[in-house]
Each structure stands twice: as structure tokens, then as C-alpha cells.
């Protein structure tokens, strides 16, 4: 154990904390998807990690389409125009996958009043199917006879390999917090996560549709009797989760720049943990949970070594749930007051 690594100097402490916050912000955005769907349906949408993963591919594909495959090193400012297009593409792609999921993997089950556990299994199955479909995209392209035309997108024979954004976004140091170079990319990630979170929170609290979501979350039957179209509400919930995952995917690709068919899994587990930690079904909880998880992982890595980061994160989760069984903020989506 090496507490000196973390607390030895303020420099290191600030550095570990900042590094954790940046990833925590990405966890938080993905966690929103889990928490929204859980809030409305009391269902854990395990395939949400793949919704995110398709978003990351949409970002990389947009860059390949608009820039080409030549390696380049751009500043954030130079990449911004394509990045904005990529953001839209990722949001659309993720939202589309989320809607397809809802239609194919959940609605038939919900319509038949299947137990929640069945939907959970369906979610896990959908997750595998989506991930493997991405890993087999070269074969699908071959069947359709377009593998030559789309070689840059489907990576024939290498579809399972890491897929990179040809444009590396070079972060620029803005200022330094105790030895950690806070870059423009880091700042955009944290700010974007906060803004999206605030906007979503306001949407759920203040708009007519948000009221519908809260109504269905509280009591689906009464909401239906009051004239809320609950199918539509569930659809919109999935849609919003997908849009947020698309934003997270864009931020992730800004920072990491590489994805693969299995990229969603680990982040999905982390984001789900963040959602539970903050109080699943609670939007603000997702933000808090994401940031806390990111920072705790980083501290854990500092004290016990990187191989213990996940252990630290999950022990923390257990401890929090022991004291507060419904998570840090613990309030469900339906009880949020306008």
C-alpha cells in the first residue's frame, strides 16, 4: 500500500483527482441511459453499452468519410467542424440503435407482460448480438458485395481489431492544476457532461414530455388512464438515453480516439455502477455517481496500483449501498419534483 503516491504531494493528489474526473464525466453520461430506462421501466438495459459503442464507431466513420484515412494530428479547433458533424452522427446512430432495441428486444416482452427478469435476459442477449454484429461487419459487407467499396469502414478480416479515428485530436494545455495539465479536451468533456446533464434534468422537470416520463415512472397504469401514451414515453426514454450515449461516445473518441466491437463492455459496467452508486433512476445521482466512481478509481489506482482500481470501485459501491441502500441520492425519477 502506498498512500505516499496519492497524498505525498498536492501535485500528485490533484493529478489523480483530475484524471478521474474526466473519465467520471464520461461514465456519468453513459449512466444516464441506464438510469432513465430503469426509472421508467424498472429494467436494466444491459445493451446500453452497445448503444454507446455504435456511437463511437459513428464518430470514427464520420472522420473517415469527411477527412479520409490519412493520419493527421489536429488541434481541437481545427477538428471542431467535423467533430460537430460526428456528434450529430453519433447521437443519431446511438439513438437509432436504442430505438431498435426498444422495438425488438423490449416492447414485445412488455406487451406480453413478461416478468422483468425475462427482459433482463433479453437485454443481455441483445448486448451480445449487437457487439458481435459489429465484430462481423466485414462478413455482412461481403454478403452484400460492398466490402471493397466500404473497406475503410468495415476493415475486412480485421473487423474485430481496434478501429481508430484517423484524426488524432491533440489536446492543448490550458492551465495546470498541481502538475496535471488541464487541456482543452478535458475541459470540453467535463463541461459538456455538465451541460447535457443540466439540460436533461430541466427537460424532465419542466416540459410536458418530462411530466409524462415522471408520470409513467411513478405509476404506468394511472398515467395511461390520465391519457399519457406510455409506449411513446418509453420510446422517448430510450431515445434520450441513446442521444446521451452518442454525446458520451463523441467525448470518448475525442479523448481516446480508438474503439472496437468490445469497447462498450467495460465502460458499460462502470456506467451501470455509477448509476447504482448515485441512486438508480435518479438523473443527478448518475452525474454524482459517475464523478465519484471516476475519482475513486483513480485514487485506488494511486494507492494500491492500477490492477486494483476495479476492486476499489466495487468495494466502495458495496460500502455505499450498505449505508444507503438506494444509492447516494437515492431518489427515483418519478419522485423528482418540478
Amino acid at each position: 500500500m502506498d498512500f505516499g503516491a496519492l497524498f505525498g504531494s498536492f501535485d500528485n493528489f490533484a493529478s489523480f483527482t483530475m484524471g478521474g474526473l474526466v473519465f467520471g464525466a464520461i461514465y456519468a453520461l453513459i449512466a444516464l441511459g441506464y438510469t432513465m430506462v430503469y426509472g421508467v421501466l424498472q429494467l436494466i438495459n444491459f445493451a446500453h453499452s452497445e448503444v454507446f459503442m455504435y456511437g463511437t464507431f459513428a464518430v470514427a466513420w464520420t472522420f473517415v468519410l469527411l477527412h479520409g484515412t490519412g493520419d493527421a494530428n489536429w488541434s481541437l479547433g481545427k477538428a471542431l467542424p467535423i467533430l460537430l458533424v460526428a456528434l450529430v452522427a453519433a447521437m443519431l446512430a446511438s439513438a437509432a440503435i436504442a430505438l431498435v432495441l426498444e422495438r425488438v428486444a423490449y416492447r414485445p416482452l412488455i406487451n406480453k407482460n413478461a416478468p422483468k427478469l425475462i427482459a433482463l435476459i433479453s437485454a443481455i442477449g441483445a448486448s451480445f448480438a449487437l457487439s458481435e454484429a459489429m465484430g462481423l461487419r466485414d462478413r455482412f459487407a461481403k454478403w452484400l458485395g460492398v466490402d471493397d467499396n466500404l473497406a475503410n469502414y468495415v476493415s475486412p478480416k480485421k473487423a474485430r481489431d481496434v478501429y481508430t479515428n484517423p484524426v488524432t485530436i491533440e489536446p492543448h494545455k490550458l492551465f495546470e492544476v498541481g502538475g496535471y495539465n488541464v487541456t482543452d479536451v478535458d475541459l470540453v468533456i467535463v463541461l459538456a457532461a455538465l451541460v447535457m446533464m443540466f439540460a436533461l434534468d430541466q427537460f424532465v422537470r419542466r416540459t410536458r414530455f418530462g411530466r409524462g416520463i415522471r408520470a409513467v415512472a411513478q405509476d404506468p397504469e394511472s398515467a395511461a388512464l390520465m391519457g399519457v401514451n406510455s409506449t411513446r414515453v418509453v420510446q422517448v426514454t430510450f431515445l434520450i438515453g441513446g442521444l446521451m450515449a452518442g454525446v458520451a461516445a463523441t467525448l470518448y473518441m475525442m479523448k481516446i480516439g480508438a474503439t472496437r466491437q468490445s469497447a462498450g463492455f467495460l465502460l458499460g459496467v462502470k456506467a451501470f455502477t455509477a448509476a447504482v452508486m448515485g441512486g438508480i433512476g435518479n438523473l443527478r445521482g448518475a452525474l454524482l455517481g459517475g464523478l465519484v466512481l471516476g475519482v475513486m478509481e483513480s485514487w485506488g489506482a494511486a494507492i494500491w496500483g492500477n490492477e486494483w482500481r476495479d476492486v476499489v470501485a466495487f468495494i466502495l459501491l458495496v460500502l455505499i449501498l450498505l449505508v444507503r441502500p438506494s444509492g447516494l441520492l437515492g431518489e427515483a425519477l418519478g419522485k423528482a419534483r418540478a
Binding site: 489523480f16 484524471g19 478521474g20 502538475g179 469497447a263 465502460l267 483513480s298 489506482a301 482500481r309
Partner: peptide, 8 residues
């Protein structure tokens, strides 16, 4: 994917 702790 988060290498920040190792970098520090």
C-alpha cells in the same frame, strides 16, 4: 482506456 493514473 483511462491511463491517467499510470501517467501520474
Amino acid at each position: 482506456t483511462d491511463m491517467s493514473a499510470a501517467v501520474t
